[in-house]
Amino acid sequence: MIVYIIRRLMQAALVMVVMSVLVFAGIYLIGDPVLMMISPDASELEREAVRKALHLDLPMWQQYLLFVNDALHGNFGKSFLAGQPAMGLIFERFPATLELAFASLVLSLAIGLPLGVYAGLRPHTAGSKTIMTGSILGFSLPNFWVGLMLIMVFAVLLPDLVPGWPRLPASGRGATVDVLGVKLSFLTGDGLLHLLLPAVTLSLYKGALIVRLARATAREVLPMDYVKFARAKGLSERRIVGVHVLKNIMIPIATVSGLEFGQTVAFAVVTETIFSWPGVGKLLIDSILLLDRPVVVAYLVIIVFFFVALNLVVDLLYSVLDPRVRLESRAT
């Protein structure tokens, strides 16, 4: 098990090095950040000064080594635009993204799991067919467009047309509460309202996925002998579905939810842009569009780290849920 974790961590380190080189090289090649930062009529001397200050005058490999050296000290350089350390900027924004991603995870599980299990238990009812068709819509509708339409309906049209209809906020985080130095929105009413539309948008795709997965697994588990045996033991339907079936369904659901959590964080890029949610996704887009190299690279390194850690956690979670795997991994 420990060997396995070490091997995974080494793989991860390799992936991170490769990614950072690629990105660093790519961004170096396409544009001159200095041109974006100072006014076009600045003198050549001023430019040279900025270049030097940012080490842009050094050869590429030296810049990269500088960057690696800094990275090992948790320092990814300063944002060209904000002048703040890039790492700090990202850590400052990460909680907002995580909060959004968690909210959408909770939402998609709360809605997707019961619907999917129902559709698996009663596959031939009209309700199940509606759920399944609805799930196709859920992962077909372009996510960003759904976000726009939600804004249009709940922040513009309904409040305009229906007197007294509450206007849902469509931008920003709203009021936040500091918990151990981390700002959280969901603890205030205003923050919850601000969280609502982006979280719904982000949970749509994932919820549809969970519906389909829960249904497919339920259909797989139900004809199993152990379900029939549970019925032969005289257990109530509630216990059979709630314990025997659900516990088996939860294994793939937990695995996929965990892996999909990374997708959700990634997709938050889109949602945050639409709802001006001040998370890392919006920061990334802004940095990409403005060639703010240190921020992009810092984001990448952190997100790669995040993904590798997430995959590990999911693997461990899987082994906790499935006793069969637990034994095997202990043996190796």
């Binding site: 199993m224 002998d225 152990y226 045996f229 088996n248 499935d322 006793p323 069969r324």
Partner: peptide, 11 residues
């Protein structure tokens, strides 16, 4: 049941 490998819930 017939197959003891399948009659007990694995989880």
């Amino acid at each position: 049941f017939q197959d003891p490998m399948m009659t007990l819930n694995p989880v």
